[in-house]
Simulated assay, not measured.
Amino acid sequence: MNKELLLELYKSQSKIIYGYLIKCGCSREEAEDIVHDSFIKAIEYMDGISVEKLPSWLFKVALNNYKNKIKRKSLINEVSIDYEGFCSNFIGDNDSLEILLWKEKEEHVRECLSKLKEQSKTLLIFKYDMELSYKEIGKLLGLSQEVVKTYLYRARNEFKIAWRDSYGR
């Protein structure tokens, strides 16, 4: 196994995975444990996985570890977002009245996000809360940039529909 490759993978992916787990409602300690466990699995299985697929494989391992912890503990999965950043990125900076209205409905945004498919929620959090590029998202999810753009377009529409269904706007 290549130590330099593992170190580079850790530098580039651990903070993103950790941040995403926190956004999904994981405690800091649990997120650290999951990242640690995921890299231990990477050390064990790294030779059997192609280098270009390692980041997405590692993310999937971490996400599966988190889901298993939720199942074992029967935890409620509450999305934690940087609300102001999410709104300004999702809506845009031009419409300040719209942003003010969204600030009043922080709980509603979380509720709508929790209604989305896991992939849609993940994409929206990566793009609008964690502010990752299409390339970074694609690398994490093992998708091309074009596919990420398409899925993100669908995720935004899914969010808008969930919002309209719940709040009529």
Score class of each variant (00 low, 15 high):
85 G>A: 10
12 S>K: 15
41 K>D: 00
107 E>S: 12
74 S>R: 06
46 M>K: 07
7 L>K: 13
90 F>E: 06
42 A>I: 01
127 K>A: 04
120 S>K: 03
53 K>R: 13
78 E>N: 13
108 H>W: 00
72 R>Q: 08
45 Y>S: 04
27 S>K: 07
107 E>K: 12
44 E>H: 13
5 L>A: 08
33 D>E: 15
56 S>K: 11
23 K>L: 08
155 A>D: 07
47 D>T: 07
90 F>R: 00
124 L>K: 01
96 S>A: 06
156 R>L: 01
79 V>C: 09
96 S>K: 13
38 S>I: 05
43 I>C: 06
138 G>R: 00
71 K>N: 09
43 I>L: 12
94 N>I: 01
151 Y>I: 00
71 K>Y: 06
108 H>A: 11
34 I>M: 11
3 K>D: 14
33 D>R: 11
113 L>P: 15
152 L>S: 04
15 K>W: 14
102 W>I: 04
160 K>Y: 13
75 L>A: 07
151 Y>D: 02
108 H>G: 08
26 C>R: 03
100 L>P: 15
119 Q>M: 14
133 S>I: 00
15 K>F: 15
80 S>W: 02
61 V>R: 05
29 E>F: 12
37 D>L: 10
140 L>M: 09
62 A>E: 07
165 D>Q: 12
135 K>N: 06
150 T>P: 10
84 E>D: 14
34 I>G: 10
47 D>S: 12
38 S>G: 10
25 G>Q: 11
8 E>L: 15
153 Y>T: 01
40 I>H: 06
162 A>C: 13
108 H>S: 11
168 G>Y: 08
11 K>I: 09
167 Y>T: 08
148 V>N: 02
157 N>E: 09
155 A>G: 03
57 W>V: 01
57 W>E: 09
154 R>G: 08
10 Y>L: 15
35 V>D: 06
112 C>Y: 06
80 S>M: 09
5 L>G: 11
7 L>N: 14
88 S>F: 10
51 V>I: 02
16 I>D: 14
60 K>W: 02
132 L>N: 02
18 Y>R: 07
98 E>G: 10
76 I>G: 15
152 L>F: 04
44 E>V: 05
155 A>C: 12
7 L>M: 15
49 I>M: 05
61 V>Q: 08
84 E>N: 15
99 I>F: 13
22 I>F: 11
57 W>Y: 02
124 L>V: 01
33 D>G: 10
148 V>T: 04
126 F>E: 00
58 L>D: 07
99 I>D: 04
74 S>H: 06
81 I>A: 08
51 V>Q: 06
135 K>S: 01
53 K>Y: 04
117 K>P: 11
